[in-house]
C-alpha cells in the first residue's frame, strides 16, 4: 500500500488512517516494531512532526506502545486490532451509504443492489 494524501483533509488524520489500515491488513504485523518516525516520515514524504503526532495518537488509542530502548511496537492484542478493523469497516460503509444516498437510493434499495451486485454484472456480460 503506497502513501497517498487527499487535498481537503489534514495530513495528520490521513496518516492515522493509513497506518491503522496497515496494521489491520497485516502489512505491519502484530507485536512487531514500527519503523522510526524519521523513516516513516521520509517514506510518506511528510513532515516528521506530523508523523510524530499521528503516532502519538495511535499510542493514545492503544494500537501501538513505546518501548524505551526499541522504539514503538504494534500491540500484540489481536482483539484490539479486530475491533479496529470493524471500526474501519463501519467507516467505509458509512461513507458508501452517504454517497449512495446522494444518488437518491434508500437504505433498503442499497442492500438489494449489493445483494445483486456480482450477479447483475455477470448477467450483463452474458447478454453481451
Amino acid at each position: 500500500m503506497a502513501w497517498s494524501f487527499k487535498e481537503d483533509r489534514p495530513i495528520y488524520t490521513q496518516l492515522l488512517e493509513q497506518i491503522q489500515a496497515r496494521i489491520v491488513t497485516g502489512q505491519y504485523k502484530i507485536g512487531e516494531r514500527l519503523p522510526s518516525v524519521r523513516e516513516l516520515a521520509a517514506e510518506a514524504g511528510v513532515n516528521p512532526n506530523t508523523m510524530q503526532r499521528a503516532l502519538a495518537e495511535l499510542e493514545r488509542i492503544g494500537l501501538v506502545y513505546s518501548q524505551r530502548t526499541s522504539g514503538r511496537m504494534i500491540t500484540d492484542d489481536a482483539q484490539k486490532i479486530g475491533e479496529m478493523k470493524m471500526q474501519l469497516a463501519q467507516d467505509v460503509i458509512e461513507e458508501f451509504l452517504q454517497n449512495m444516498k446522494k444518488l437518491g437510493y434508500e437504505q433498503k434499495e442499497i442492500a438489494q443492489l449489493i445483494e445483486q451486485y456480482p450477479t447483475g454484472k455477470r448477467k450483463e456480460t452474458e447478454k453481451a
Binding site: 481537503d8 483533509r9 506530523t50
Partner: peptide
C-alpha cells in the same frame, strides 16, 4: 498546514 486543511477543507 493541518490547521488550515482542518479549518478551510482545502
Amino acid at each position: 498546514v493541518d490547521a488550515i486543511r482542518e479549518d478551510e477543507g482545502k
